[in-house]
């Protein structure tokens, strides 16, 4: 199987600081793999995710994602690359509060032609995803700000999944959820990424979620600055 993400080295320090924030040990992620990154806050994982998504530029690195050396891309190419190949979910406040559920879900298609091409009929794709994630259809035109946190995270998941991006990045997506919603969220996350053949990078400090993942990494041991 091909390596989807290949990090051989990565050095990053924020401007005006003496100490580096990141010095990564090599990390290879294969296609369709589900990776669990365990890390405390302050371990540099936000920085790592920003670099992975092409928002921050490392000072020295050897990173290739989908056979592309992302450090060689221009800023706008990086934006397009992220739009085309990534689906991202955060801990909380993933949605634009003033847009409806359906407007939030299809938003990635506005920024990525590739995703838009994957979705033949937007309306039916939205309904399909909502159905798969057990989101009732009557929420379709409801404003995102009126949803419960559990519903919001599932809508965010639907948005990350639309257009079948190759890589799904989830950064503490369940930390604001109660136990029951957490379980159902994880179930949906696994079944949908499998169905779409997407690679999953899951970042969390909650080790109880680590079961079912193909590989589990401790981020503080990946980051040489900390060890």
């Amino acid at each position: 199987m091909k390596n989807i993400i290949e990090i051989n080295s990565c050095h990053f320090s924020y401007p005006n600081t003496d100490t580096p924030t990141l010095d990564l040990a090599p990390l290879h992620v294969r296609e369709n793999e589900h990776i669990f990154l365990n890390g405390k806050s302050g371990s540099g994982k936000s920085t790592f995710l920003n670099i992975l998504c092409g928002v921050l530029e490392p000072q020295k690195s050897d990173i290739s994602i989908l056979q592309t050396d992302i450090t060689q891309l221009s800023a706008s190419q990086k934006d397009r690359f992220r739009a085309d190949n990534f689906g991202i979910i955060f801990q909380q406040f993933n949605l634009l509060p003033y847009l409806s559920v359906s407007q939030n879900i299809v938003l990635p298609c506005a920024f990525s032609k590739q995703k838009a091409l994957h979705v033949s009929v937007q309306e039916s794709e939205i309904l399909k995803l909502m159905d798969a994630l057990e989101l009732p259809a009557h929420l379709l035109h409801k404003q995102a700000m009126h949803l419960s946190v559990g519903e919001q995270q599932r809508v965010a998941l639907a948005r990350a999944l639309i257009g079948s991006p190759r890589i799904i990045i989830a950064d503490e997506p369940t930390s604001a959820l109660d136990d029951e919603s957490k379980q159902s969220f994880m179930r949906h996350l696994f079944s949908q990424t499998k169905a779409q053949n997407s690679t999953l990078i899951f970042v969390s400090h909650d080790k109880t979620l680590a079961t079912h993942f193909d590989k589990v990494y401790d981020f503080s041991s990946l980051n040489r600055v900390l060890s």
């Binding site: 706008s76 934006d79 990635p108 506005a110 920024f111």
Partner: peptide
């Protein structure tokens, strides 16, 4: 700022 981060996440450029 969160709103902007969401748009950036979806691939919106700083422009």
């Amino acid at each position: 700022r969160r709103e902007i981060a969401i748009l950036r996440m979806l691939g919106a450029s700083v422009g």
